[in-house]
Amino acid sequence: MSRPALPASHILLALAVVAVWGTNFVVIRIGLDHLPPLTFAALRFSFALLPAVFFLKKPDVPWGNLAGYGVLIGAGQFGLLYIAMKGFISPGLASLVVQTQVFFTIGLAMWLAKERIRSFQILALALAAIGLLVIISHNTDASVTPLGLLLVLGAAASWAGGNAFSRAAGQVNMLAYVVWASLFSAPALIALALAVEGPGAMIEGVRAANAATWAAVLWQSVGNTLFGYAAWGWLLSRHPAATITPMAMLVPVFGMGASAIFLGESLPGWKLGAAALVMSGLALNIFWPRLEGRLTRPASQTEG
């Protein structure tokens, strides 16, 4: 039997989450005008932790799981991403390249769960890799540097590692999980900021922060983290993951579009072509198993 269509209100909610996650890259760039990157990330996860941790029950998962997720997502994914976006890669391209976490996730599954890679996944990875090569070889407007690309790929790999911990946690309240994991994200980022940026730069950044900077911090903590994960988790609890998760492919669309509109990032043909290749790889990875299942399913099961 066919699945019921998503209600219009649920589609709008999913689009709102994706829009927040996509435009968030522009917000990050605004916050980095005054705050050092690791200090900015530390503030983001501190505000995500407090005061929400006092109102959400700790998920029934081991502390080690929360620590692994918190450090990889906080210090790994966002620490590296913020450093990269401090002049090494444009927000639009960052929103695209970080989506390669899908392929790092597949690689981890092959390594940890001994899953075998399938032919369509090889093709999907090849398309995304060609897109990255286009970015490297056709950059003519200084929107990405080799270091920036490596940092964002490192962020994507850290995101994939965090995904492994969240899958191991099982079915949990994802909002509570992210909030309690921030108990480890924030201290790790504070320690890194003290070691790399120094207390002087941290204090100066906070002093120089204006209303737009603090709005960017709150957008990260409340909009991107609390609203985003709460709404996405609510949707996943009511609809099949295969129906909801493909909408996350719109994140780079919002990211590149917002960067072009609000920051004046150019969108030459090579950049759009690279985006098309990477997103084609993502789409193939997401949709091919569903299409294959429909093609191989007996006709009697597809009717109705």
Score class of each variant (00 low, 15 high):
Met1Glu: 11
Ser2Val: 11
Ser2Lys: 14
Ala5Trp: 05
Leu15Ala: 09
Ala19Phe: 08
Thr23Trp: 00
Asn24Val: 02
Ile28Thr: 05
Arg29Ser: 15
Pro37Arg: 06
Pro37Glu: 07
Phe40Tyr: 15
Phe40Ala: 09
Phe47Trp: 04
Leu49Arg: 05
Val53His: 10
Asp60Cys: 06
Gly64Pro: 04
Asn65Arg: 10
Leu66Thr: 12
Ala67Met: 15
Val71Asp: 08
Gly79Gln: 00
Tyr82Met: 12
Tyr82Asp: 03
Gly87Lys: 03
Ile89Arg: 06
Ala94Val: 09
Gln99Phe: 02
Thr100Ile: 13
Phe103Cys: 03
Leu108Phe: 15
Lys114Gly: 14
Glu115Gly: 12
Ile122Ala: 15
Leu123Gly: 12
Leu125Pro: 00
Ala128Asp: 10
Gly131Met: 06
Leu132Val: 05
Ile135Gly: 00
Ile135Glu: 04
Ile136Leu: 08
Asn139Asp: 09
Thr140Trp: 01
Ser143Tyr: 01
Leu150Lys: 06
Val152Tyr: 00
Val152Lys: 11
Leu153Glu: 11
Leu153Val: 12
Ala157Phe: 14
Trp159Ile: 00
Gly161Trp: 04
Gln171Asn: 12
Asn173Tyr: 00
Asn173Ser: 05
Leu175Gln: 06
Ala176Leu: 02
Val178Met: 02
Val178Thr: 09
Ala181Lys: 01
Ser182Lys: 05
Leu183Cys: 08
Pro199Glu: 09
Asn210Thr: 13
Val217Thr: 13
Gln220Glu: 13
Ser221Glu: 10
Val222Ser: 10
Gly223Arg: 10
Thr225Gly: 07
Ala230Val: 10
Ala230Met: 13
Trp232Leu: 13
Trp234Asn: 05
Leu236Phe: 04
His239Cys: 08
Ile244Thr: 11
Met247Arg: 07
Ala248Met: 15
Ala248Gln: 12
Ala248Trp: 04
Leu250Cys: 08
Leu250His: 08
Val251Cys: 08
Ala258Gly: 00
Ala260His: 11
Ile261Asn: 01
Phe262Tyr: 11
Ser266Asn: 08
Gly269Tyr: 13
Leu282Ser: 05
Ile286Trp: 03
Leu291Phe: 14
Glu292His: 13
Glu292Ser: 14
Thr296Met: 09
Pro298Ala: 13
Ser300Cys: 03
Ser300Met: 05
